[in-house]
């Protein structure tokens, strides 16, 4: 089951040495059930903080975040998050990492084994089930992290620059993976990235953020269907949108 995510008038301030620092203010956005939406912005637009608030790991200064109409108060297994830094448990095997949340939830062993096996298969990790994270490449580690979140079958999957630390080739493969997983599971996905092409390739809608303070500069509907071969990267509409978003971000950068 997936549900729609709503942010209304969301603002976040941090206490700084010389008064409050505004991370972002007046953010209104929504992610419909089953949608894949990206937030694109330069560093300093507070996009990671925003994702943490949706995850329930941080609290907004003003405004409200709701999932299926219910206000978000704290973290919970209905909202999975994946960070850029993999964040795996190094003493657990791949299968034990994927099963971590299920174990906390007290799922019976046999059911857990089945569920873990399924998501290992989805992320093509069966061969590595008994390996430890230290033995895996960056791309494989991130697949484990995604499988671990997906195993909870969350209503929303939050991705915080998940492929930012990977090399270009691996990143391309991971993007294909993510699309196929999204199709297979129908999970609602909200992803933060600074890679414009990645956002265009993956998402159905994009929110372009400005920085200092973070605000929504523009909302862009991506005009591609669910099937996305790598060749759409050479589509004229793709290139035009890429240049448009780069232009928006560059206008920002001049102020810096």
């Amino acid at each position: 089951m997936t549900a729609d995510l709503q942010l209304r008038g969301l603002s976040k301030e941090f206490r700084g040495k010389r008064g409050p620092i505004v991370a972002f203010s007046g953010i209104d956005l929504h992610v419909d059930s089953g949608e894949l939406v990206c937030i694109v912005g330069a560093s300093g637009c507070g996009k990671s903080t925003l994702l943490n608030i949706v995850a329930g790991l941080d609290t907004p200064t003003a405004g409200e975040a709701t999932l299926a109409g219910f206000p978000i108060q704290g973290p919970g297994p209905d909202r999975g998050i994946v960070f850029q830094s993999y964040s795996l448990f190094p003493w657990r095997t791949v299968a034990e990492n994927v099963g971590f949340g299920l174990e906390l939830g007290g799922m019976p062993k046999s059911e857990m084994r089945e569920r873990v096996a399924y998501y290992l298969r989805v992320m093509k990790l069966e061969k590595w089930a008994e390996s430890r994270p230290g033995q895996l490449s960056g791309g494989m580690r991130q697949r484990v992290a995604i499988a671990r979140s997906l195993a909870m079958e969350p209503e929303v999957l939050l991705l915080d620059e998940p492929f930012g630390a990977l090399d270009a080739h691996t990143r391309g493969l991971m993007q294909d993976y993510l699309l196929s997983v999204w199709e297979q599971t129908g999970t609602t996905i909200l992803m933060v990235t600074h890679d414009v092409e990645e956002a265009l390739f993956l998402s159905q809608r994009i929110y372009v953020f400005s920085s200092h303070p973070g605000r929504i500069r523009r909302e862009i509907v991506v005009p591609f269907g669910v099937e996305r071969p790598q060749t759409i990267r050479r589509d004229e509409r793709f290139l035009d949108l890429r240049d448009e978003i780069h232009g928006l971000l560059l206008a920002e950068a001049v102020d810096v």
Partner: peptide, 10 residues
């Protein structure tokens, strides 16, 4: 982040 992930996993 490891601690945060654990909280989102229940």
């Amino acid at each position: 982040e490891l601690i945060r992930v654990a909280f989102t996993l229940g």
